[in-house]
Amino acid sequence: MDNTIVATHDTHAEEHHHSLPQLRHHFETEEQQREAGTFGMWLFLLTEIMFFGGLFFAYLLYRNWYNPAFVAASNQLSIPMGTVNTAILITSGFFMALAVWAAEVRKQSLLVMFLILTTVFGCAFLGVKYFEYKEKWEKHHIPGASFDVSEFINPPVSAKTGKPIEEPLSPDMARKTQIFFVLYFAMTGMHALHMIIGIVLLFWLIARARKGDFSSGYVAPIENFGLYWHFVDIVWIFLFPLLYLINRHPGT
């Protein structure tokens, strides 16, 4: 969503020839400008919460209705990949926090380095996500015309035990796994979209940081972007347990 670009974008300034270079003409003080920017960012994040809120509401409703389908479908997600991704994202968030610190203490080279590290880990997250999506594509678990439920009706037999690795679902319940995958793709897809927008913004911030824009005490863009990036982390912190962890069968 391109709105995020502007939300962070406009909180800082063009060059205006006032006492402070980044103070925009309609603000009285630098303090006021900074507070307004941060406050605007928080409000924007509130909007984002409501945006994801609709999906969470749908998730709760359908999870309640079609619990067996949700359990079986969530078993299809890879916990190792999810865990690795959670770790990657938290690391990325950690470097973002360090970047904010580096900007505050006006260390330009550190700032650039931390921003690059944030970006690298953000890209790594998307990379892992790509492999997860690819697997779903191969298994025909993408909702739509080619969605295939056979794996839920006749789960593959485990070589060790000779029993199906999953409890088989009846055909009518198996069809409901599509709803799980709709929500899975809608929620993680929206999340990934926010990541992509964030990474585009990161490139732009890195370019500006290298010019030294944020090394003279003007840190609002870095701070506000940090808020956004942490918000994206937190959304994942909710998505990971809801989609991957809750109510899995032990030993699968």
Partner: peptide, 19 residues
Amino acid sequence: PVLAITLVLVVLERTIHIG
């Protein structure tokens, strides 16, 4: 934003019949 996400779901439902 709730309307926005609802419309996204309507468009997805219409294009790829997500159900």
